[in-house]
Design a binder for these strands. Structure first.
Length: 437
DNA sequence: GCGATCAGTT
DNA sequence: CACAACTGATCGC
């Protein structure tokens, strides 16, 4: 009935080739050291990290996508049974080390899969990213944009990572006699730690496995596993709790910093308020001075930084795009259609609700109807299996609550929620259907 | 031992 | 509160 062609961050059987955008565990669920279902394409850095995450994995199955250049892959068209070429380009996603977006061209059209991504708009890096993307797209039209819609809601507003990193530095400076612990995951936030180390001229403690990762990533001097040489430690997020901090504080005054979490989310908008309250300007002004080390004074200067516990600060350092950045990105890409790749968010709204007007198809925002698009050229149909919601806002809501995925049939109508229980949280299976017209 | 799934955690 | 990312217990094989 339906044969798979390619899968992105999805590891179920049935595709000819597989792609991994980055090595976070919520994208590798279903992947293991005994992987043998086919070639696995990823960035060079991801490939380098692979043996560490999946020791024993058959490395001969890995294929490296160098960022910024087109790769051609010969596959068998599920519809015709003949050879077909898929072209793919990896583009830096600025999410975590090795993370990429994937741009596909083939007989199915042009698809852009963002994976998890951060699209900061002001830095030099951002400019390079922008021009790289535009160059890659050139005169292609993106038929479907698979979007990291984690924060696809106007209530999600936070500053650039540069600014958030400086907030962390300021917290550390204003606690000169404290130990500092920062919660991080197994990959990501290296730039934050680098920034701290650089600004304060201090080494940063990490746990032994993390030090190995740092070495693989090319950091050789700023991290240490010796507790005696620094008061700043980066610890696994799961070991970071109120309890931990209270225990630590019985030994030595310690402040915890959580770069993430969501207490910093702006309050939900009501009515016809300005859609984009500019919190960023307030971050800038509030953090320009310091020197006040008294707690109450500091508190006033915190701006978006939330002190949600006696010993813990939450800083809005995010590796996902905020709403404005998502908007900026969609404006740039101008896809024909958009699908979210995350639907577990409580603030989940179909990206088209906010961004439908930015799409080329410019469909009425209520009738999120995929039929026309499916009929392109009258003979080729793209079936997509993904966690993304389809249909009306109401069914999106229903889907979300039940944690289900949606599946599209050839006419683009939502048909099956049945197998959904077995499916992974994220990822898309990009398949080509039997043509029947 | 391995993979999948669930229930937690910040 | 809430998310992404992760750990650990449990189950079937």
């Amino acid at each position: 009935m339906e044969k798979g062609l390619i899968s992105v961050d999805r590891w179920t059987e049935g595709s000819q080739v597989y792609f991994l955008t980055h090595l976070h565990s919520d994208h590798t669920r279903g992947l293991s050291s005994s992987w043998d279902r086919g070639l696995l394409f990823c960035s060079r850095l991801t490939a380098k990290l692979f043996p560490f995450k999946f020791p024993g994995l058959d490395l001969s199955l890995l294929r490296i996508l160098d960022v910024g250049s087109w790769h051609s892959i010969s596959l068998i068209s599920p519809s015709s049974g003949e050879k077909t070429v898929v072209q793919v380009m990896a583009i830096d996603a600025h999410h975590c080390p090795g993370s990429v977006m994937l741009l596909f061209r083939g007989e199915f059209g042009c698809l852009l899969y963002t994976g998890d991504f951060r699209w900061e708009t002001s830095s030099e890096k951002a400019n390079i990213g922008r021009t790289t993307l535009l160059k890659a797209l050139k005169d292609d039209v993106v038929d479907i944009l698979y979007l990291d819609n984690t924060y696809c809601n106007p209530s999600y507003s936070f500053p650039s990572r540069d600014i958030a990193a400086q907030q962390v530095v300021d917290i550390i400076i204003s606690h000169p006699d404290h130990d500092i612990i920062i919660g991080i995951d197994s990959l990501g936030k290296e730039e934050l730690l680098y920034h701290i180390s650089h600004k304060l001229n201090i080494k940063i403690w990490v746990w032994p496995e993390r030090l190995q990762t740092m070495h693989l990533l090319g950091f050789h001097d700023i991290f240490t596993t010796k507790t005696t040489v620094t008061r700043v430690r980066a610890v696994p997020r799961y070991s970071f709790s109120i309890d931990t901090l209270e225990r630590l504080n019985t030994i030595h005054s310690t402040v915890g910093i959580m770069p993430s979490g969501l207490p910093w989310v702006a309050k939900p908008l009501k009515g016809n308020e300005n859609l984009f309250p500019s919190l960023i300007t307030s971050y800038k002004s509030k953090w320009s001075t310091n020197g006040g080390t008294r707690t109450d004074k500091l508190k006033e200067n915190l701006g978006s930084v939330d002190k949600f516990h006696k010993h813990i600060y939450s800083v809005p350092y995010s590796d996902h795009s905020c709403f404005m950045e998502i908007q900026e990105f969609i404006n740039l890409v101008q896809p024909t259609n958009i699908r979210g790749i995350v639907n577990s968010s409580s603030c989940y709204v179909d990206p088209l609700y906010y961004f439908g007007r930015l799409c080329r198809a410019n469909q009425p925002s209520l009738g999120l109807n995929y039929k026309q698009e499916k009929r392109v050229e009258g003979k080729r149909l793209i079936a997509v299996q993904t966690k993304s919601n389809v249909g009306s806002g109401k069914s999106s809501e229903a889907n979300r609550k039940q944690g289900r995925t949606a599946e599209l049939d050839i006419s683009g109508v939502q048909v099956s929620k049945v197998n959904a229980l077995r499916q992974v949280r994220r990822g898309a299976k990009i398949a080509q259907n039997e043509s029947s017209d």
